[in-house]
Amino acid sequence: MDPNSGKKHLINRLSPEQLRERLANESFKRTTVSFYRYVIIDNPYEMRDMLFYMWNKWQCYGRIYLAKEGINAQMSVPDHYWQDFQEHLHSLPQFKNVPFKIAVEDNGQSFLKLQIKVRQQIVADGLTPEEYDVTNVGKHLTAREWNNAMDDGAIVIDMRNHYESEIGRFDNAILPDAETFKEELPEVVDKLKGKEEQKILLYCTGGVRCEKTSAYLKHHGFSDVNQLLGGIIDYSRQVETEKIENKFIGKNFVFDNRLGERISNDIISHCHQCGSPCDVHTNCANKKCNLLFIQCDKCKAQYDRCCSDDCQSFILAPPAERKELEQRLIFKRGKRFHKPEQSA
């Protein structure tokens, strides 16, 4: 099959404004769900087209990655189509009984459209299949087992990026200072040198990054590797259902329009501009920059949702002046925030 065949006709062509209006006018509720599975998919392009056809018919939105190694999905499903969605997905041999992680906080606005993309890997790690066996993974721990292991002094590793752990984490976890999962893997191995026989606990948002990390660590000689079953999302559900202690503090960063869901009432981070307690991420209103950073309501108003004076000047400038400003100003275009220089 032509790799681009599905992309020619099974895509959304509405503008962002039209998508937001469409979502705002919906009269029904949605459920935000995430799931993943490492499984051999012989023809991910064919799978992509089939899933898009069905899910688009049911008005599902989301961001889904398919590869020959499996699926990684974050989705918003209309409640009245939930049974159809679940039965269809579980009817496919590759995804039979795949476990779902339901969002902790859900306003129905998590996604605007349906995107299903075929990738080389469902989580980019920069590794070749020869460098680890993704089927040789660590032990999955329930929330209760996880809490007990933490109490017994196990080493806890946060397998998310720095901007995720900044707003929420398990206490005393090792927090790699990484921008990407690809950067994080070797950093974690380096931090754990000499601890190959100790009990290692891995956690991430929904579990997909820990699955690869556990296999990678076992390949590098770590003998007691464990991962949080269902990630932070399902940990929160188990804590509430079983009425056990919640050891996660703050918010869980999520990769959709919500940018986070609260797990505890603690606010452990600060506004990147004024330093006041805040754990609300936003993207700079200057699309030429689009920096992801933490901004309080006061600074949001003061800077017009921008990360710096330069970006604010750019979005407020008349269109005729923007081309000249774009050549003169430096925009961040990344996820690292540096305190802006104030105008005189």
Rank of each mutant, 00 (worst) to 15 (best):
V254T: 14
S308N: 06
G250H: 00
N283T: 10
Y235K: 02
F331A: 13
F331Y: 01
V280W: 01
N283K: 11
Q302Y: 00
A285Q: 11
Y235R: 01
S313V: 05
K298Y: 07
C311M: 05
D310Y: 05
A317E: 08
I268P: 13
E242N: 09
D309A: 04
R237I: 05
Q227L: 15
G231N: 05
F253Q: 04
D256G: 05
H281P: 13
C307P: 08
E261T: 07
C271Q: 10
N283A: 02
C299E: 14
R333C: 15
I330H: 09
E240G: 00
D279G: 07
Q273G: 07
K287C: 07
D234V: 02
C289D: 14
G260H: 01
P277E: 06
I315R: 03
T241V: 12
H272E: 14
R258Y: 01
I267C: 12
S264H: 02
F314G: 07
A317Y: 12
K243D: 14
D297H: 05
D304A: 09
I249L: 11
T282E: 11
N226H: 08
L228Q: 03
E242F: 01
H270Q: 11
A301W: 02
R305M: 11
D310Q: 15
H272L: 06
S269Y: 13
Q302P: 04
G250Y: 00
E240K: 15
D309P: 04
P277G: 00
I232R: 00
R258Q: 13
D266K: 09
Q238H: 09
D279A: 12
Q312H: 09
Q312C: 08
F331E: 14
C284L: 01
L291C: 14
C307M: 02
K323R: 14
L259I: 08
Q238W: 08
S264R: 03
E245S: 04
L229S: 13
T241L: 06
K332Y: 02
D279K: 00
F331M: 15
R322C: 04
N252C: 14
K323H: 12
